[in-house]
Design a protein around this nucleic acid. Sequence first.
DNA 1: GAAAATTTGAGGTACGTAAATCAGAAAATT
DNA 2: AATTTTCTGATTTACGTACCTCAAATTTTC
Lengths: 345, 345
Amino acid sequence: MRPTVHDIAAAAGVSLATVDRVLNQRAGVRKVTRDRVEQAIERIGYVRDVAAANLAKSRKYPFVFILPSGDNSFMRGLEAEVHAAMARGPLERMVISIVKVPAFDAEALVAALDEVRATAPAGVAVVAVESPEVIAAVNRLRADRIPVVTLVSDLAGSARDHFAGVDNVAAGRTAASLLGRFLGGRPGPIAVLAGSMLVRDHRERLDGFRAVMDEDFPGHTLLPVIEGQDDPVLTEKLVGEALAASPGTVGIYSLGAGNRGLIAALKQRKDAPPVCVIAHELTRHTRAALNEGLIDAVLNQDAGHEVRSAVRVLKAKADGAAVIGAQERIYIDIFLKDNLPFDEG
Amino acid sequence: MRPTVHDIAAAAGVSLATVDRVLNQRAGVRKVTRDRVEQAIERIGYVRDVAAANLAKSRKYPFVFILPSGDNSFMRGLEAEVHAAMARGPLERMVISIVKVPAFDAEALVAALDEVRATAPAGVAVVAVESPEVIAAVNRLRADRIPVVTLVSDLAGSARDHFAGVDNVAAGRTAASLLGRFLGGRPGPIAVLAGSMLVRDHRERLDGFRAVMDEDFPGHTLLPVIEGQDDPVLTEKLVGEALAASPGTVGIYSLGAGNRGLIAALKQRKDAPPVCVIAHELTRHTRAALNEGLIDAVLNQDAGHEVRSAVRVLKAKADGAAVIGAQERIYIDIFLKDNLPFDEG
DNA sequence: GAAAATTTGAGGTACGTAAATCAGAAAATT
DNA sequence: AATTTTCTGATTTACGTACCTCAAATTTTC
């Protein structure tokens, strides 16, 4: 049997009330008595039964997820995952709510963070936008002892508790490594398609990609980065133009979310020499393109994993419990047409 | 506020005792009354507070993990992960124990399963060995309504609740796809190194590998499978001989656990033309070999994920709760030297 | 050494559920 | 209609912890 508060009382030779005062750091206990109780706790290996404690406290865990609005399909998928977590929440006394903020708007994000802070939630998960003001706002939350997890996009220099997302530099490096090897020495320039270079994730991916290309595959030149703003129509046009301008192009790295346009552009040049394509994010479209051989590999971050990990970490932090590091590391999934998971997109 | 049993009683116009009888399927309730209560439950959206129920019942979850003994390093890593889960167990009222059984010994496994069954655990995870007797033994557990999860190695045709492991056919296909593309048309035979063809995982990987090689890269012949019995010394010898016999070999797929021997053999032929190598399981040795460029890619199944997933599923099944499919799917991790995780190994 | 302040003890109620007892009501059987 | 059987209600205790009150014991202060 696990020891209980009663066992502590007996072991320390004090009353239950005193044990309670020590355990819940209430005032009115002499230092010597406190020490005696703490030693007893240590000695008999008491661990608080969190479930029973929560029951007694009628404790709730109000968590807030701050997500960018807009029609970025990855973000909408992320939101769907948060909704799924929301539905499962009550089973574990969690009440999850979502606050939406215009994408890439640091000012709005700061306002949202401060508003959320006023509601004193048990934890906050936020898709960060990089700016000193945002860092300060996150630090204000932490100063209030509210756990903060950054989601998908980290906030370097802040006091956030945890980052639930992938290592984007490693993702870029991996993309370069795959692309370089898949090309197997076939010479020619390589095109890079991004959404916008203003986003940290995209910059990091590009940095990683560049580093490995320069180091391991110096034979290939990188064409100027195409910024398609994650817009299908614009992307299709720009990619088409770029391929026309550099007909010898042998590879494309699509590090953003503009895959629909890319795929459309690829379909238009069926007869042209093959181009090796590495893209990000497994969606209905990239999955189909993988199967058709239009795309050679897809690097994916699993939004469901990220959300569930964020929730677990927030809960653990709220309880003052330990986080299982290995469990919360989000790996980049690499999908070829040969290891596609069955359902969903 | 979430509705409680009292709310059910009020809504159905019955007493608490009757609600309890219905909720815990005790006898002595007329069909009509039972229906009325169940409708009330439905109507007010009652969900049992599992934490409170477990507290009242002083419920424990005794789970048993049945693992193969022997010095297979993957299995020992798996055991370490089970020990880690064991240590975290008490926080969630789980008591995990380990039963070890000689590897690949169906008879011993059956005996262990029946012995475990007699202790009426709340769930069993087992690294399965394929045999009709084992299937029958697993089905006996299921007949006793004991949840069963197969771990790492599945048991087709059995009534197990869940399989916590990777799709090994897809792993083999992925290996072939990577190897074929990395070779980029460079002709030459390919060697396959396995532990033993008696293990289902290995057979499945080989099947997947063969299928894609035949289909997509028919230019390469596959040399006869080398069975190194996962023994470093034997493996080094056999690989050395095979490479000497077929000096034109361009690729190696190591689908078992004999990587130390393989790496030793590779180091002996530094001056020889490069061979593209795909191996399984990220260990200290394969990680080092990746970094040195001796191995080009490592496919990995994360034992920690598998164990944690098995535990979660067993708990959910024991509670009669739903399993989050996407969360419990174990992906094959693909590691290049560019996306190696930092610690452990 | 008395008064004041602080510390400690004893006991209760609550959280939501499980499980039990026992009395009384309703139904089924004679 | 009387009896047996089956169903239902009312009530209690318990799980492990939190939180509250009030009294008693101890220490500190003057």
